[in-house]
């Protein structure tokens, strides 16, 4: 007897479910909102790109999920469910068991993420030993294997190297290797290719994509670069001033952006004909202390009206079609028409 074809969304709960996540930064003048009502879900084997300018809260979202937000910043509310388990308020020892094991993270600057005074081998081995009950010899063997898997040439010799003896691209491969070490369910990558040159960037994107597909690892890819998101992601969430303003399937969202901010980001990308002018978004993103109420993009928005002074509600991006994503704007559709 043949099973009926199952619908596209899997019946399992999503791997990562972020609900109304709020983070604050304590200051002398009272707490400032770093993140406000951040919600998204990420399924097994899916790639979600979190896109936004510097200071939009992308990294804060990542560190909130990891439980690594350092004082004076803190998670002030909301929920992060990982494989059905609530991470907000989880005991530090429990959280540590997940970090680097079930949830791995890759940082932006490969020059800074590896400890300069320890060998590559020591840093991989300590990560193996943190989560696996194996001996040193076995840990070393795994370290060598994982370096080979991410395409580091001569892994055995590299283990004895210090980070400064490796190029930026190689260092980022080492960081990626460390992330893959325990075959995590989720990898959070915080702009991991930004600091690399374009050829290495493309190469690493391709390889990460392959490694992730192979193991059905979910990927939360943080970037300010829409073209990277386009190459890599299944879904895109656009962040502005601590909020997600639009989310949806990558191709649909890029082809037909609804939120004026998303549309502005796309218009500022170099694409299409050579020599065509880029259209920048006027103004600057607000600082943490000066975020306007209501829609924070309002002062820079071409179609803003009096209605934008109130918090814009979520609505479907495209009327009628269910998996089309959602947008937080009172004027959906107007920007595209312009």
């Amino acid at each position: 007897m043949s099973a009926p074809p199952s619908p596209a969304p899997s019946p399992l709960p999503p791997l990562l479910e972020v609900q109304a996540l709020r983070a604050e930064l304590a200051t002398r003048g009272g707490p400032l909102n770093m993140l406000d009502d951040v919600s998204f879900t990420l399924g097994h084997g899916r790639v979600l790109a979190l896109v936004g300018e510097s200071g939009s809260g992308k990294s804060a979202t990542a560190f909130s999920i990891m439980g690594l937000l350092d004082p004076p910043a803190r998670v002030a509310g909301g929920s992060v469910r990982f494989a059905g388990r609530e991470l907000v308020g989880l005991a530090e020892a429990e959280m540590r068991r997940l970090r680097g094991n079930r949830i791995a993270m890759i940082f932006q600057d490969p020059m800074m993420t590896l400890n300069p005074v320890l060998t590559i081998g020591a840093q991989i081995v300590e990560t193996v030993l943190a989560h696996a009950p194996v001996g040193r010899a076995e840990a070393r063997r795994r370290a060598r294997d994982v370096l080979g898997r991410v395409g580091v040439p001569g892994p055995e010799e590299r283990l004895a190297c210090h980070p400064h003896q490796l190029s930026g691209g190689l260092r980022q491969r080492v960081a990626i290797a460390i992330a893959l070490l325990h075959q995590p369910d989720l990898i959070i990558a915080d702009e991991p290719t930004t600091a690399l040159d374009a050829t290495i960037q493309a190469q690493i994107l391709r390889e990460v994509r392959a490694l992730v597909t192979e193991r059905r690892t979910a990927l939360l890819w943080i970037t300010h670069d829409l073209s990277v998101a386009e190459q890599l992601a299944d879904d895109i969430a656009v962040m502005y001033a601590g909020r997600i303003v639009e989310r949806g399937p990558a191709t649909a969202l890029l082809r037909q952006p609804i939120h004026p901010y998303t549309a502005g980001l796309i218009a500022s990308l170099p694409r299409g004909r050579r020599g065509s002018r880029l259209t920048p978004i006027p103004g600057l993103p607000p600082t943490l202390a000066s975020r306007p109420s209501g829609c924070a993009f309002r002062p820079r928005c071409g179609v803003a009206g009096p209605a934008c002074a109130a918090d814009p509600p979520w609505r479907d991006r495209l009327a009628g079609s269910a998996p089309g994503g959602a947008v937080r704007c009172v004027n959906p559709g107007q920007a595209v028409a312009a």
Binding site: R96, R99, G100, F107, M112, L114, N115, A130, H131
Partner: peptide, 11 residues
């Protein structure tokens, strides 16, 4: 970053 990364690795 490398101290944060050390923590992110679950050490």
């Amino acid at each position: 970053d490398y101290v944060r990364f050390a923590r992110a690795r679950g050490l």
